[in-house]
Design a protein around this nucleic acid. Structure first.
Lengths: 210, 210
DNA sequence: CTCCGAAGTAACTAGTTGGTTACTTCGGAG
DNA sequence: CTCCGAAGTAACCAACTAGTTACTTCGGAG
């Protein structure tokens, strides 16, 4: 069990390096395939300290997962679309989400792994509200404003649309290796991402057309 | 290395039971987390025969993955939309894909795992064309017919649309556990699937509207 | 009934790995 | 400079696991 006393600056730095290294190793190898020695080595520290701070491999996994959710939430909170007209705001939300997953394939990998675990670790998280995406509230607001102004249909299920927006971004990142093996194209290039983003935005806006 | 002589009916049956058991275990635990003893036990056989037929755990993984792709391809080949009007045909393709992944979460799990491996095993497959989905060709045909009849826009990127159709079905299955943990809803119920299907069809058709 | 390959059993090997113990060394605060 | 907690080192343990070996038993074809 980790100490609950406040950590010194040096201790905080070591802990953070372990967490960063864990993110890389868990994203590349999954929980079962990740190696504790490898994480410690990548962090420039040792197993002793890893166990001192995190207690167990599984506890490190959950902390890394929570940190990944928190990082996404923080970027979402910086997203301000309230001042944009509805269509531009919606395009912004779709593009943000697609680009976020493209920039953070490790987040996508962790989600996939946690679903393999049937979200067993996530359910042990004590901070579930922190996992909730502010995107859903922004989406509701933009949908309401769009409908009021006659730019969007009024009968949209916000949860369904949220799932679709996230799906459009998530899927190609999650499957980029098998898709590349089959279609022989690099889906991670800037050109491919730009095409993907344009398509996703058009798809969502096409759906919302009254 | 497995024997290349034709197998007896009994041998074929044992091999198939091992493959079926492997699919379950790999889908639940991933390659690194799966246990060979567990696969053998679930198949009602033993490690000796597993190694006799497959040679190594990784070879079993690739064979299970190829079998999963082949099973999907076989069902896709049974899908006949050529006689349907374009909109109905497109709705059919979208619904088929969404329902296929809902019925086969193990396929989704294997894809996610293979992307974790960066498709290293899939690239060793000697039968890459078998992995190619007939859906893409059907999609091109339906898009062309729809554009000819003025029911679809004419400037659609078929690959982008294919990725989106698959994404709409794949994502909620791939993330059903983390989404349930966060949103507190069972996305696998028939009601949820029906809502998801209706939404996905509307989204694609909305996008295709001229 | 016989025969032989399939199938099964059990022990084994060699290596791996999460986690622990028992120290020594380091680095920053006072 | 001293002190003490952080950090590191190295050996260790116990359990696990992929894969192998050396058999025995089973089951179907002839």
């Amino acid at each position: 069990m980790t100490s609950s006393a406040p950590l010194s600056a040096r201790a905080v730095a070591t802990r953070q390096r372990i967490l960063d290294a864990a993110l890389v190793e868990f994203a590349a190898k999954g929980l079962a395939g990740a190696r504790v020695d490898e994480i410690a080595a990548r962090a420039g520290t040792n197993k002793r300290m890893l166990y001192a701070y995190f207690g167990a491999k599984e506890a490190l996994w959950l902390t890394a997962l929570e940190a990944a959710y928190a990082a996404k939430r923080a970027e979402e909170e910086d997203l301000d679309v309230a001042h944009l007209p509805p269509r531009a705001a919606m395009a912004r939300l779709v593009a943000f989400n697609l680009r976020y997953t493209a920039r953070h394939p490790e987040f996508v990998a962790l989600l996939n792994q946690e679903n393999l675990h049937q979200a067993v670790y996530l359910r042990r998280s004590l901070d579930v509200p922190a996992l909730y995406s502010p995107l859903t509230d922004m989406l509701r607001d933009v949908l309401a404003r769009g409908a009021e102004q006659g730019q969007f249909r009024a009968d949209v299920d916000a949860l369904q649309l949220y799932l679709s927006i996230v799906a459009l971004g998530h899927f190609t990142v999650a499957n980029r290796h098998t898709l590349s093996a089959i279609f022989g194209q690099d889906l991670g290039s800037e050109a491919a991402l730009a095409a993907r983003e344009a398509h996703a935005v058009e798809m969502v806006l096409g759906y919302l057309r009254p």
